[in-house]
Design a protein around this nucleic acid. Structure first.
Lengths: 232, 232
DNA sequence: CGCTATGTTGATCCATATCAATAAGTGTGG
DNA sequence: CCACACTTATTGATATGGATCAACATAGCG
């Protein structure tokens, strides 16, 4: 693996405190791969051969059942995905495809499990990472079960506004169809939902989102740290 | 803490491999409490003071937002809850109340975090536990996003049938209103959903569920190991 | 520059929520 | 042990959020 990617991975919270020895061993069996957009990388039900790290681009995690499909999450750099499956040596619960051109580091699962057994600092880092992932899904679950689709969209826009550093104008980071699936609705419904947010000062032009008045939007969205906060 | 509860906790996968020293230290600050039914034990947003272990009875994890409330999970003996909040020293994302009379062990969060730092076997056990929890929520998320309420109920019954050791007649383990919230529907809708399962050979009398023909039910429910399997 | 996928809009349908009334349990105190 | 009170469950009527189907517009992309 080229030194530069190597450093990117090392900088990850998950690998930061790991011993140099364990890290080197881990990297020796790893490699980096470039994927074009919309490429399926893994499919749910398969066994976990590699821990994946998104170095650049974006990856969509999605699931299917009975001819239906839903987007579970979008993973952006620099972070890992399917850590739980890797640790438990269990089949993937979700499939993954690239959203855009992406660079992915692949670390053999058995090496990760070995490092996990050998290096207790690494084991501890995994705990923190997993706890984070767990809390993220719980938040998402609350979002879905407690809010209407319009409320979910409004809160998504507020979150995105925060993530964009408080800009009141920004682009959606992926296609609307993906967003609709992520938010648990149909593309048609999303289109109409955007219309329904106009009274709350949100206008849309293509991928461009503009928030006229954040307070009005927030008054409707009622963002909650226990659902909408990224970290913690 | 009385010796008997002590052993129950020790038997938990989470504590089984922990050093005797760490375990003793952990138990020294812990205690067991009895709760009547329908008692709120913790509330979301509070900071995590104790890791909770359900020794007997049952605990409902639920969340609220904007005057709405939903059941997130039911925790049965012997297992822990709010482990992630304890580890991250972050506020609870869910509230907890007893479903029935319950005995709960309370282990001070800071002791858990200390043990986690000192005892790498314990740290590793936590990883497995957390990975399990994470996968459980992901499955629940898939259940909600990919299935209709009728399909969710059908699959719940199939899962319960399995959990009851394959019995085709069993009692619901809690009130129907709780089940409806767990499945993401209203009590009225659940009532009607049960009616709609009659053609698939499911009859209900009070809490008693009877499956006439498992194959017919399964043909409709289409249970999927990546959604419905308890373990793995 | 034209093809194909994405997005929008309209019409309609369906699942589920809500509101309201009644029935059936369940627990409590006399 | 029964009667009352209160909660839970059922049933019916209606409303509504969201899905589906269909047509058209638009925008990327080769």
């Amino acid at each position: 693996m080229p030194r530069s990617y190597f450093d990117d991975v090392r900088r990850l919270h998950l690998f930061a405190k790991m011993s140099q020895d364990s890290f080197d061993t881990l990297m020796r069996g790893s490699y980096v791969q470039n994927f074009p957009p919309q490429i399926d990388m893994i499919h749910e039900g398969e066994t976990s051969d590699f821990l994946h790290v998104v170095l650049s681009g974006a990856v969509e995690l999605y699931s299917s059942w009975s001819n239906r499909e839903t987007t579970m999450a979008i993973v952006r750099p620099i972070s890992t995905f399917i850590l739980a499956a890797t640790i438990k040596n269990a089949p993937y619960l979700m499939s993954a495809r690239t959203v855009e051109k992406s660079r992915i580091a692949l670390i053999p699962s058995q090496d990760v499990r070995a490092a996990f057994d050998d290096d207790s600092d690494f084991a501890r880092a995994i705990v923190t990472e997993l706890a984070q992932c767990y809390r993220a899904v719980v938040k998402s679950q609350k979002d879905i079960k407690l809010r209407t689709s319009l409320e979910r969209l409004a809160n998504y826009i507020v979150r995105q506004h925060v993530r964009e550093g408080g800009a009141n104008e920004f682009d959606l980071p992926f296609e609307k169809r993906t967003l609709s699936s992520l938010l648990g609705m149909t593309p048609e419904n999303l289109s109409r939902a955007f219309k329904n947010l106009v009274p709350y000062g949100v206008t849309v032009d293509g991928r461009r989102i503009r928030i006229e008045d954040l307070n009005i939007l927030k008054a409707f969205a009622k963002p909650d740290p226990l659902i909408d906060d990224r970290a913690s």
